[in-house]
């Protein structure tokens, strides 16, 4: 899997709902595409699960199919009440896992 990028605000006030943006480099090969030279179908290889944790608690997750675009972008929200860490995990069908981390200061 390619490199992951996450955008989390550095600071927030307690009770704020923040927006988080994530992006990961991945072909998301749907299994429908054909190799132009051989005419054979290119086997499916996608990221099928994304999970976001805030201080160890899963607050958002997503199941993906071949219908998700290459280099998947995903944005979502989180209600924050104390400073802490975020952990984002992408699982692909071949068992590969990529993790990204970020922290936030909540006042």
């Amino acid at each position: 899997m390619g490199k992951a990028r996450v955008k989390v605000p550095k600071t927030a006030k307690a009770g704020d709902i923040i927006t988080i943006k994530t992006l990961i480099k991945h072909k998301m090969e749907s299994g429908n595409r054909k190799d132009k030279k051989t005419g054979k179908k290119i086997p499916r290889h996608i990221i099928d699960k994304f999970t976001a944790k805030y201080n160890g608690e899963v607050f958002f997750s997503s199941d993906w199919e071949g219908g998700v675009s290459a280099n998947p972008y995903c944005a979502f929200t989180c209600r924050v009440d104390k400073s802490g860490d975020f952990e984002f995990t992408w699982h692909d069908e071949k068992g590969e896992v990529t993790t990204a981390k970020a922290s936030i200061t909540v006042s």
């Binding site: 805030y54 998947p72 929200t77």
Partner: peptide, 12 residues
């Protein structure tokens, strides 16, 4: 904890 039921993604 999500705060909102909101998500944004790109699809085929």
């Amino acid at each position: 904890r999500s705060g909102k039921a909101f998500a944004s993604i790109r699809v085929r």
